[in-house]
Computed example of a mutant assay.
Amino acid sequence: MDRLLHLDRTLDELDPPAWAPPGSDATRLVRRVHELRRVALGELGPADLRTLVSQQVALSYVLPLAVRLLLDEPMLDAYFYEGDLLLAAVNAPASAWDMFPDLRTRLRTVITALPDTAVAVLPRGAAEELTRFVAQPESLH
């Protein structure tokens, strides 16, 4: 199924069951993730995608959207700093990437082409995270 065909639908619709409202004691992050599950995929911005990918919510839907942005602008500043969406994506579990081997390959190519000056502005440890992602073996599935 092409997950980009469902841009007019929400994660609560596409990734059942729909989540119940967060508890009154929920953190701001938890409340935000619950809100984002009720937003149409096509309306999710880079910061929204970074939040959902970082929290590993419905990766089968949000990871392709994030990669689509990253292929055009790998060092996109989604919310915190240049490259924050990229780092969220490369830290998604390997099992999520196994669903999208072609996207993983395309993102690896983009990462490999990043100039050292771009990687140098990322937080400490980010270069190692990028190297680990590029070096991950392809899925055996």
Rank of each mutant, 00 (worst) to 15 (best):
M1K: 11
D2A: 12
R3T: 12
L4V: 07
L5R: 11
T10Y: 11
E13P: 04
L14W: 07
P16E: 10
D25F: 15
A26S: 13
T27K: 13
R28C: 14
R28I: 15
L29D: 08
V30A: 15
R31G: 08
R32K: 09
R32E: 15
V33D: 00
V33G: 01
L36W: 07
R38V: 10
A40W: 13
L41G: 01
G42S: 08
G42W: 14
G42D: 10
E43M: 12
L44N: 02
P46A: 13
P46F: 14
D48L: 06
R50S: 08
V53P: 01
Q56N: 11
Q56H: 14
V57Q: 09
V57G: 02
V57N: 04
A58P: 02
Y61R: 01
V62N: 00
L63E: 00
L63Y: 03
L63K: 01
V67I: 07
L69V: 03
L70S: 01
L70Y: 06
D72P: 07
E73A: 15
L76Y: 09
Y79A: 14
Y79N: 13
F80V: 15
E82G: 13
E82Q: 13
D84E: 09
D84Q: 07
L85Q: 03
L86F: 05
L87K: 00
L87E: 03
A88C: 04
V90Q: 00
N91H: 07
N91Y: 04
P93V: 06
S95M: 06
A96K: 02
D98R: 04
P101V: 05
L103G: 00
R104Q: 09
T105P: 00
R106P: 04
T109R: 13
T109P: 03
T109L: 11
V110S: 02
I111L: 05
T112H: 10
T112A: 09
A113Y: 12
A113E: 05
L114M: 06
L114A: 02
P115Q: 07
P115T: 08
V119S: 02
V121W: 12
L122E: 00
L122Y: 06
P123K: 03
R124P: 08
T131M: 09
R132L: 08
F133E: 00
V134Q: 02
A135E: 11
A135D: 09
E138L: 15
S139T: 08
S139Q: 04
